[in-house]
Design a protein around this nucleic acid. Structure first.
Ligand SMILES: Nc1nc2c(ncn2[C@H]2C[C@H](O)[C@@H](COP(=O)(O)OP(=O)(O)OP(=O)(O)O)O2)c(=O)[nH]1
Ligand SMILES: [Mn+2]
Ligand SMILES: [Mn+2]
Length: 557
DNA sequence: GCGCCTCCTTAA
DNA sequence: TTAATTAAGGAGGCGC
């Protein structure tokens, strides 16, 4: 066992590219350099990318790498594909400890009592690569043994591993950006912000940095003497957050209303309108990165830039979506699961009322909006339905009467009545949640429909608040995680369908897929996309997806 | 100038 | 305050 404390340091052998796959085992790749490690041998090879890619593409099935998406990008850059995928250590480690740091260093330290000693070599860079290959091989033995033992083999084989080539393709395609749209928005916002800034400084009686919460707090709560509504969590400073500004504006103060307007526009300009153009590559497209080992629940995340939080809720923010466009002669096609987590909850809880509602084609978000507002469901506006979404997800994930009352603008007593009525209407949901709490306490973990695990700490913490937070995580994770599993399966199925259809999968936004297709094919692609997404798994309630298509993401939603 | 933390805001 | 979940990013501010 090479992880034994007595394992001697190995001599690094320099080999030709063809030798790497005879040794791997663990495989590590960096520009111009590759290393491979087996039980008692570690080798490295300096060669140009084309040569390394050609040598590796053929026989990766016995190898383990830490991050296979990056290896695949390298192979595809050089015109290759892998005949069979290598095992991916980062994915195995993620399934064991989602939400923990997933780097080769962190994973090795977590899973090995003794790290393999560094190999000897005069080429220090090659030695470092060799060490990474050794760590990969050693950690993988432990990690994949545990993946099997904990019943995670199926999630690895059927979901995470087949998703890797899908994500690599999405990152490779990227999405086209119309810079003229952002330019125009930037000018409009710039002019508007300059005006707001003048008004704010005049109202405050002196110039200050509006973007600084610290300086703003001095103006609001010291110079102007407004009441402190709330304090920040870490430093206990007076909060200047949107909740506080809304409250102050509601009490008739003029400055907070101006600050709110300034905040919305400043955020749009700095985070999206002015930042996105800097991320556009030479091909006119933004190539976001999709991360598969970051979230605690099994969702993907997106960065550089994050394309999973592009504004949609305000009309001004939504304008940003006009900048995300299809290729010439093509259209964007998007599909979004309807009420996804509520449907998952209906299936997993078996609650008869909820199941019956979905079988009858009801829209629970709309029904909640109608109940809260005392309107007919047909009269609910999109904004009202959006607000009801927050209420529904808030309630099922443990929101209290205090927060609900604040959100709805009703008394705490009324809010409590609403919560009681909600769970009386869905008794199976309440029972399911009690069962989850029980299971989490007993096993220390909860699982999704497909067996993905999240371990939950602090369920017996002495503090009631910490304990309650852990319980909310225990209730959220199986539902959010199952929804994540479902769309990952859909992505794999869509990718397979695309092998012989002329369209491209570009983005995933948690329960939404964005494709582009030749304009003439867009209606067909939308129908097929819907069919695949709805049929990827059969639950006790129907899964439905809403589709749209158009020249930009603004219309395709 | 860089890394890190805090606060705030965006999305699902 | 007496706290619905999961993420990423920008600006300010600080230490180095
Ligand atoms: N806990 C929590 N989860 C949310 C929130 N917003 C969205 N989600 C989760 C639950 C949703 O089912 C899922 C997808 O978000 P969507 O905006 O697409 O909502 P949903 O599918 O429920 O409704 P839809 O029929 O698509 O309008 O993400 C939120 O504010 N809190
Ligand atoms: Mn949805
Ligand atoms: Mn959605």
């Amino acid at each position: 066992d090479i992880t034994d404390g007595v394992a001697p340091a190995l001599e690094l052998e320099l080999v030709p590219p063809g030798e790497l796959l005879r040794v791997a085992g663990g495989l590590h790749l960096e520009p111009g350099l590759a290393a491979a490690a087996g039980r008692d041998r570690v080798v490295a090879c300096r060669a140009d990318g084309a040569e390394l890619a050609a040598a590796l593409a053929g026989g990766l099935d016995g190898a383990t790498v830490f991050a296979s998406k990056e290896l695949l990008r390298f192979l595809r850059d050089h015109g290759h594909r892998w005949a069979a995928p290598p095992r991916d250590l980062s994915l195995g480690a993620y399934l064991l400890d989602p939400g923990e740091e997933i780097s080769l260093e962190a994973v090795s330290r977590r899973h090995l009592e003794v790290l393999p000693p560094d190999p000897h070599a005069t080429d220090l860079e090659a030695a470092a690569a060799g060490r990474d290959a050794l760590w990969t091989a050693a950690a993988a033995e432990r990690v994949f043994e545990r993946v099997e033992a904990e019943g995670l083999g199926n999630v690895y084989e059927e979901i995470e591993a087949p998703l890797v080539p899908v994500l690599e393709s999405m990152e490779r395609w990227g999405i086209r950006v119309d810079l003229a749209v952002l330019d125009e928005l930037s000018r409009r916002l710039g002019a508007s912000l300059a005006g707001l800034e003048r008004e704010i400084h005049a109202e405050a009686g002196e110039p200050f940095n509006i973007n600084s919460p610290q300086q703003l707090a001095v103006i609001l709560f010291e110079r102007l003497g407004y009441p402190v509504i709330k304090r920040t969590a870490k430093t206990r400073r007076p909060s200047t957050g949107v909740e506080v500004l809304k409250e102050l504006a509601g009490r008739g103060y003029r400055l907070p209303a101006l600050i709110l307007e300034y905040r919305e526009q400043a955020k749009l300009k700095s985070t999206y309108v002015d930042a996105l153009p800097r991320q556009v590559a030479a091909d006119g497209r933004i190539h976001t990165r999709f991360h598969q080992t970051v979230t605690a629940t099994g969702r993907l995340s997106s960065s550089d830039p994050n394309l999973q939080n592009i504004p949609i809720r305000t009309e001004l923010g939504r304008e940003v979506r006009r900048a995300f466009v299809a290729d010439d002669g093509w259209l964007l096609v998007a599909a979004d699961y309807s009420q996804i987590e509520l449907r998952v909850l209906a299936h997993m809880s078996g609650d008869e009322t909820l199941v019956a509602a979905f079988r009858a084609g009801e829209d629970i978000h709309r029904a909640t909006a109608a109940a809260v507002l005392g309107k007919r469901p047909a009269d609910i506006t999109p904004a009202e339905r959006r607000a009801a979404k927050t209420v529904n997800f808030g309630l099922i994930y443990g929101m209290g009467a205090f927060s609900l009352a604040r959100d709805l603008g009703v008394s705490q007593a009324e809010a409590q009545q609403f919560i009681d009525a909600y769970f009386t209407r869905f008794p199976g949901v309440k029972a399911y949640m009690d069962g989850l709490r029980e299971q989490a306490r007993r096993a220390g973990k909860v699982t999704t429909l497909f067996g993905r695990v999240r371990r939950i700490a602090n369920l017996d913490h002495p503090s009631a608040a910490v304990r309650a937070a852990a319980e909310r995580m225990a209730i959220n994770a199986p539902i959010q995680g199952t929804a994540a599993d479902i769309i990952k399966l859909a992505m794999i199925a869509v990718h397979r369908w695309l092998e012989n259809h002329d369209a491209r999968l570009l983005l995933q936004v948690h329960d939404e897929l964005v494709l582009e297709a030749p304009a003439a094919d867009a209606p067909t692609v939308a129908r097929e996309l819907k069919r695949i997404m709805e049929g990827v798994v059969t639950l006790d309630v129907p899964l439905t997806a809403d589709t749209a298509h158009g020249p930009s993401w603004y219309e395709a939603k």
